[in-house]
Design a protein around this nucleic acid. Structure first.
Lengths: 214, 214
DNA sequence: CTTTTTCATACCTACTAAATGTATGTATAG
DNA sequence: CTATACATACATTTAGTAGGTATGAAAAAG
């Protein structure tokens, strides 16, 4: 089999298998041969043709996870919303976005995957925080929010997201609820009322549901 | 040279060299042979005698860095301080503690060292947060602080420390000052006034000094 | 418009280099 | 005398490279 018509499909396949394995066994414990074995009828040569190294695969993966489907593109041309409303929507979209990754890959053990965790932090800081900041400045300009801490909050939001991950900071549903209330309260006090009553209570419902499942 | 009288010294030496190399070049880029080369007159056999694997060296290192010299032991038998005062002292001790690591190892590029970053997060959560929580509960009991968020704050404090690291979140001195003010303000609003005027202004002085150096 | 040639590239095979880890041996402190 | 702190030599795993082969597609020729 030489010269595939759609090499992008091959690349996607490689990334899919790599993501699965990295999340399951961790980056260091996954060999390139492991990835190849998951590719049915391919050899290491194919992988090395598309990616210079294992690190490059990791890099591409992190980009795909945290960059490609970020929720901010959809918000760009929504002129019907003010800054705060956009921010709230971004939170919601972001949440369901992450939910997707989490479920499909069954609760990624991030602490066993330091590369992914670090990549996430770095990618968030470089790519997501500026977008948050932009929205906040929009909100400040149109008067829908008042805060002296836009820059700080834009960096902190992604960090708080990590704090909310039960795989990094294990938490019972009750504790999760408490965390949410804390964040909601804190953000409001700092001038960024992102989580209103409705969002908090819907999260609580969600967590109670999680509790009932056990 | 066989059968050293003080094997602990050998172990310490290994950890010292490993720490230096890991922080300089990163975990993955450091080979066990590199460590051995820094040990003058030792062979890989010695290292493998004391540590089963490279990962075990890393584990021991992280313990040594974040566990052995943590500031809380000193606070245990200080019955002259109330909870809040102990918390404040803990912050100060913790800060100078970290300063030590940072200076001696010239600004560790944590994001190039995902293992260390993740180990730090994990170690903080497991070991440090409970100690913070304990102090906070003491402060609540003796009335020196009032907060409904002790558990949350005890987890968040170490995270905020990471946020304050310029090697993870690059920041100019001005931005650092702003971050400090943010944290001070935020903690106060959440019922944990750890940073009083004096501490904030001393930090500002410190940052301005850093600014002047350039 | 059809055929041929050319060329980039998707992929394979075989090999190298490097690093981890292991089995076994030796000397010495207690 | 024995456990253990190390050394030596070796086996194994794994990343990465060099070079080759096949093929789709576009340009050139007929």
């Amino acid at each position: 089999m030489a010269r595939n018509k759609y090499p992008e499909q091959t690349i996607e396949k490689i990334l899919n298998v790599a993501q699965k394995l990295f999340l399951e066994k961790g980056f260091d414990q996954t060999t390139i041969q492991d990835i190849v074995d998951g590719l049915e009828g391919m050899t290491r040569g194919a992988v090395y043709h598309h990616f210079k190294s294992k690190d490059e695969i990791m890099e591409a993966l992190i980009n795909r996870m945290f960059l490609e489907h970020n929720p901010f593109d959809e918000l760009r041309n929504r002129s019907d919303l003010n800054g705060l409303q956009k921010l709230k929507l971004a939170v919601t979209l972001n949440q369901s976005n992450q939910e997707g990754i989490r479920i499909s890959e069954q609760a990624l053990p991030l602490l066993q995957n330091p590369r992914i965790l670090a990549g996430m932090i770095e990618s968030n800081r470089r790519n997501l925080s500026p977008l948050w900041l932009e929205l906040m400045q929009e909100g400040i300009a149109d008067g829908s929010i008042q805060t002296a801490y836009a820059k700080e909050l834009s960096e902190l939001l992604p960090l708080l997201e990590i704090w909310l991950m039960p795989t990094v900071y294990p938490a019972s549903p009750e504790e999760m609820i408490h965390k949410f209330i804390f964040i909601s309260d804190m953000l409001t006090k700092m001038g960024l009322p992102l989580f209103d009553e409705e969002m908090v209570s819907s999260t609580i419902q969600q967590q109670l549901h999680r509790l009932a499942e056990k």
